[in-house]
Design a protein around this nucleic acid. Structure first.
Lengths: 236, 236
DNA sequence: ACCAAAAGCTGATAAATATCATAAACTGCC
DNA sequence: GGCAGTTTATGATATTTATCAGCTTTTGGT
């Protein structure tokens, strides 16, 4: 790595993260505008990026770390709807629909994000059909995933959803050299992903451990028997 | 009504239904192309429009009637994800993302739909940013709603979801002169909307009736006490 | 290093929901 | 109009999940 990498990375044009999201469909000028107007922020684990009901005047592009996107329900519990990591753009919906967000975003690990004011985004949406289409494709995909989540939530048991959550964490955030998941969530967050009580989540984690599906070390969790977890999800 | 209404209506340019969906952002020529390539179909209650896993080579625009969009889960139950009625376009996602559908569509009442081959849609998506943006806005809205559904499914009780479903049916499909809901769903379909066992749905309907929240006449259901249903949804 | 607060854990119990069984009411059909 | 098949209904029971209470472990701050 060269000494001036920091400076290079700070331009969107050179940002690797862009590969993963709709920004890659922007042309040079558009990207320049975005880059000139954006600001980079460091967010500590546990800190909020934005809260439900806020009007966002821009989107957040994740460079590093992970954020949970959740919605408070009437019973006082948070439901985590999505975990956004490197390359993902948060707050798009609010900006596109010109409504306040329906979700809160809180960092679940230390993060580095770029905040892109909405003007440059909205402008490009009106002028560059390729970009708009790219965003649309992303959203179509998200919507399809949302359907799957709805079906899982309503048709699968808590145990099945928990097993699925572990597989999801492994597939999306990977595991480190010791075989533990890269992303460590608190039991409460796990419960809020799965949509269950914290105690129930803890109980199921204990059970999975006892049965040898997973192993734990402190808060870290490792997938020990992926096959068994998959079977459980499928209902065997 | 004039004698040639049938003919007028059969052109998209004059179709009222278009007011409700993204097609209104198309220009004259684009609309003409759509109109020339589309075909109109009548679908009887209970008949499928398309099935999960199919590759759709076009979208369906609902002129009349209602279709359920559902997904089969591993336990053999159908989860109804959406009810599409007049003006709604089905199959967009599949066409946009160029993937097979993740949902099945079955008519829950007699329907009249227009099938629009994908070419004219895809073409416009590439060339008319206004149209693309309009579709995008719709999808952003759908996605927001999907988030709400996820939260409801995971955080609310079956009883609350059932109450919510009745309010939804009233708000979206209205009621007739006798005070009964315009859209009559079977108990099984109700259960599949709410994500519960058919017996549980029946039990809750009986309970609501006993408590005076709703009234029934055969399969028809009328909302008797909207306030109480709303309170129930909110958790009182 | 120590203390308070938070997170994790476990048992007992209650509540919600699913499942199984059975019967009545309705529907389409000849 | 009557019969077969489906839908609706209800009871009994089993299973799943939430809630409450008490305890231990971990964490972060000074």
């Amino acid at each position: 790595m060269s000494g001036n990498q920091k400076i290079m990375d700070s331009r969107c044009e050179n940002c690797i993260v862009r590969q993963f999201n709709s920004l890659r469909a922007m042309n040079k000028e558009e990207l320049k505008k975005v880059s000139d107007s954006k600001t980079t922020k460091k967010i500590k684990k546990g800190q909020p990026l934005f809260e439900e009901g806020e009007k966002l005047n821009g989107v957040f592009c994740v460079r590093n770390g992970v954020s949970k996107l959740s919605k408070l329900s009437a019973n006082g519990k948070d439901q985590i709807v999505k975990l956004a990591s490197k390359g993902e753009v948060m707050g798009q919906r609010s900006v596109i629909a010109e409504e306040s967000t329906n979700l809160s975003a809180v960092a679940v690990s230390d993060m580095e994000v770029c905040f892109i004011p909405k003007d440059s985004i909205v402008n490009t949406l009106h002028k560059n059909p390729n970009f708009t289409l790219e965003v649309l494709r992303h959203m179509a995909h998200d919507l399809k995933e949302a359907d799957d989540v709805i079906v899982n939530m309503s048709q699968k048991t808590v145990k099945q959803r928990m097993a699925e959550a572990f597989l999801y964490l492994k597939n999306n955030f990977g595991e480190n050299a010791d075989g533990f998941l890269n992303l460590t969530l608190s039991r409460e967050d796990m419960a809020n992903v799965v949509g269950t009580a914290t105690e129930s989540a803890i109980r199921i984690i204990s059970e999975f451990k006892k049965k040898g599906y997973i192993n734990t070390s402190g808060k870290k969790i490792g997938i020990a028997d992926e096959r068994k977890l998959k079977d459980l999800v499928e209902g065997y």
